[in-house]
């Protein structure tokens, strides 16, 4: 008959310790990568805000007759990218992470600054750049619908040139967002404002949006 005792209790303890060490460290690794990305996005956000403010000031102070918008596409893509990464960081580092919350507020500020600038350029240079303000919600019950409208807007964005989309968390505790909601009478998430005039709530089809684009 074979000896049926457990071969080595130490081996179990060692396996438990090594397994636990690897398990915890993978979470630590992914958290660290998120934190590095947060720092990178913070620094990129500074650069983006600098570019937008510089463009606007340069236009206001020295170059009122210049109607060139060569950096529109780059800034628009940067804004979209940063918005999506900040949303992801919020999921990974937590909704109440003060650093991420600040980045989100700062991001909203940059968006509004750019929104204003595009408005001025449209008025003075007779551009036809369309704008969409998208109010989403990251509350658990709203995430799925917010993501659906977001994907619809992504599709609208790739199908239409001269379009800039600005997204705002409707629940963000920020005076600018509160003011924006009052200005456009926003009371529910999944609402979009097209070219400052048209309000569409919870659009389901690209045609519901594209018919209002210039």
């Amino acid at each position: 008959m074979a000896d049926r005792k457990i071969q080595s209790k130490k081996r179990y303890v060692l396996a438990f310790l090594i397994g636990t060490f690897i398990f915890i460290n993978v979470f630590f690794l992914t958290y660290s990568i998120s934190y590095f990305e947060y720092q990178r996005i913070s620094s990129e956000q500074q650069q983006l805000s600098y570019d937008i403010f510089k463009d606007e000031l340069y236009y206001s102070l020295f170059d009122k007759n210049n109607c060139s918008l060569s950096s529109l596409s780059k800034i628009s893509e940067d804004l979209r990218f940063q918005g999506s990464i900040i949303d992801e960081l919020e999921k990974k580092l937590g909704k109440n992470n003060q650093g991420v919350l600040f980045r989100k507020k700062f991001y909203s500020l940059i968006e509004l600054e750019h929104f204003e600038f595009i408005g001025k350029m449209n008025d003075k240079c007779k551009f036809n750049i369309s704008t969409i303000l998208f109010f989403y919600s990251n509350e658990d019950k709203d995430i799925k619908n917010s993501e659906s409208v977001g994907r619809l807007l992504d599709s609208v964005y790739t199908r239409n040139n001269d379009l800039v989309i600005y997204s705002f968390d409707i629940n963000l505790d920020d005076e600018l967002i509160i003011g924006l909601k009052k200005e456009y009478l926003i009371i529910e998430p999944f609402t979009i404002i097209i070219n400052k005039k048209i309000k569409v709530v919870d659009p389901k089809n690209i045609e519901e949006i594209e018919k209002y684009l210039s």
């Binding site: 081996r11 396996a15 090594i18 397994g19 636990t20 690897i22 398990f23």
Partner: peptide, 8 residues
């Protein structure tokens, strides 16, 4: 469990 078992 997979990690602990594999290590073991």
């Amino acid at each position: 469990i997979g990690l602990v078992a594999t290590t073991f």
